[in-house]
Nucleic acid binder design. Sequence first.
DNA 1: CCTTGGGTTTGGAACGATCCAAATTTACCT
DNA 2: AGGTAAATTTGGATCGTTCCAAACCCAAGG
Lengths: 350, 350
Amino acid sequence: MGNTPPVGRKVTLSDIAAGCDVSRATVSLVLRGSPLVNKHTRARVEEELRRQGYVYNRAAANLRRRTSSSIALVLNDLANPFFAEFAAGVDEILGNTGFVTLLGSTSESTERELAVLGSLMEHGPAGIILSPAEGGDAEQILAAVGTQTPLLLFNREVGGDITACDHWDRLFLDNQHGARLATEHLIAKGHRRIAFYGGHLGSSSCRQRRAGYVEAMQAAGLTVETRWMVECIPNRLDAVAQSEQLFTETTAPTAAVCYNDAVALGLMLGLHQRGLQPGRDFALTGFDDIAEAAVSAPPLTTLAVTPRARGRQAAELILQRLQEPSASPRQTIVPVQLLVRASSCAPHAA
Amino acid sequence: MGNTPPVGRKVTLSDIAAGCDVSRATVSLVLRGSPLVNKHTRARVEEELRRQGYVYNRAAANLRRRTSSSIALVLNDLANPFFAEFAAGVDEILGNTGFVTLLGSTSESTERELAVLGSLMEHGPAGIILSPAEGGDAEQILAAVGTQTPLLLFNREVGGDITACDHWDRLFLDNQHGARLATEHLIAKGHRRIAFYGGHLGSSSCRQRRAGYVEAMQAAGLTVETRWMVECIPNRLDAVAQSEQLFTETTAPTAAVCYNDAVALGLMLGLHQRGLQPGRDFALTGFDDIAEAAVSAPPLTTLAVTPRARGRQAAELILQRLQEPSASPRQTIVPVQLLVRASSCAPHAA
DNA sequence: CCTTGGGTTTGGAACGATCCAAATTTACCT
DNA sequence: AGGTAAATTTGGATCGTTCCAAACCCAAGG
């Protein structure tokens, strides 16, 4: 009874139509649950769909309808748990909405970022969520993505002539306020010689966190020593390597606001190597609240940014943008929360 | 000079053809770098492509050519650094090869896994890399992905009737041997009362690791106490909660082989709470070598699995499969390497 | 018996690319 | 100039779906 499904080739809507003797158009209506089609034909068609194991070809449909059902997610560092959580959040929402996530990881390389964006654009995503690589150029990115596809910039500002991109939506953490909170917390603990440790000036988040630190220091009437503002690659390894820079002079800082948790954990190791015990001889704070922060020795005072929730938020923002393509661009700054743990002790010996 | 690019609509190959007075076919040849087209026409067309800001529509091309340029990557837990690194590795290779990664994260839910697979299949991926959720059913997965699309199973076996899926490629860690190495190491340190801590029996990797543990214990003539084989959800939180189970009897173990690093780190916390110092009063080993393992207190002895390299390998395996669709299915077991750190001390007091 | 009209169904032209066989131009040789 | 081979270009069909206007069916009403 009935034809057999085609071999080797995928089952198409025409196969179904032929299989139960109706037109392609009718099958298409059934697939989309149109109320136009008669109950009995619908049943017959649905049976045939099952029988032949039909799978919908969304690419073909998208082509005809001039629509898209994918969102590109381009991240500067997927391996970083912060972004991995973020990606999980994005995918969670997109999956629920019938969109599919096109992933691109740039490993912090701007050339690769452009290549990835170019490649993803060829798949015609409905929108783009981009956490840019450091040192990227706004105009180049704009050239890669065009003006038709809405883009949500996450986490970092991008370099170059930004005015050309003022129609992009933005989702940023309140870096400045977060760093200010951390600094104020250390000041309240009694510290006066406080460093800002780690990060690259190339990234906007680092500049913003430094600004928050400076703000708090000045508000408290404390002097900001430029030799206590140390740059390093924001990972554990370089953070260990550069840590000695804090102790070159006779008067060393007693505390440090660190660019992020990875840097803070690296600094802890560096302190140990100098015979200092973090959380007793030296106070420090991080940023991100990665899983490790709660269980390091000592547990790390840091700023919670709930990356998974940020991912969900980013997905929702881009979906909203698809609803209203011409609404004015939106910049969202999400607050961060100070989590006090044992690493931010009072100064050891006065 | 020349027409203006169309507004609102995307510029197509026909626009270019019209813009420089050649046929669509010629433009198509230029795009694909065919040697057939004359130098001068090529230059003219390329200029026009630039001028109008053309972007290739790969979906349309794929439709016509009956090909695909995407690979689906479905992971049970993207937020886990192990899988995040893996995903980064996959994307690294795929990106270089002109494929795009369709991401799907299932959060360890089998219903969601089926939904995600179904949704991704509609986009017609050339292949699938799947790290299945716990407790999934082979036949259901097979029904979702069909027999046309090659699938690479990563990290875990899947439940149910596997015989139906023996054409799937597989990439697994050598869990059994890894756990055996860890256990032998602890035995060599002088331990005789060794527990196997954490993981779910529902997952094949846990069963394999337990098997390796049992193997080593029996080979050394040591008894395996079933009350020292404790299950827990493989995350830090539950690992802390369940840790007391190791100490219910008068004779407690002096060491534990842990299901993975997260569990081991949780157990460390649990030990602290009992007043035991891991790496001095109690020895333990992990599995995975997550970033944290090297810097925990004490640093964790564990099995390195280099997830990023696994990701690259998975991508390469699936690409090979696309080259030779009918080659016989391949099962790859990758060796793991024991990294000895301070957590695996000798027994404290005999 | 013919009309009217709601409920269903349908052919054929899109969408944006590629393939293929055939047409056109150019180049070269007697 | 004429003829042939090589180089280049091209129309039209096609991939799997959706849209649209038109066609079909059947019962009720005049």
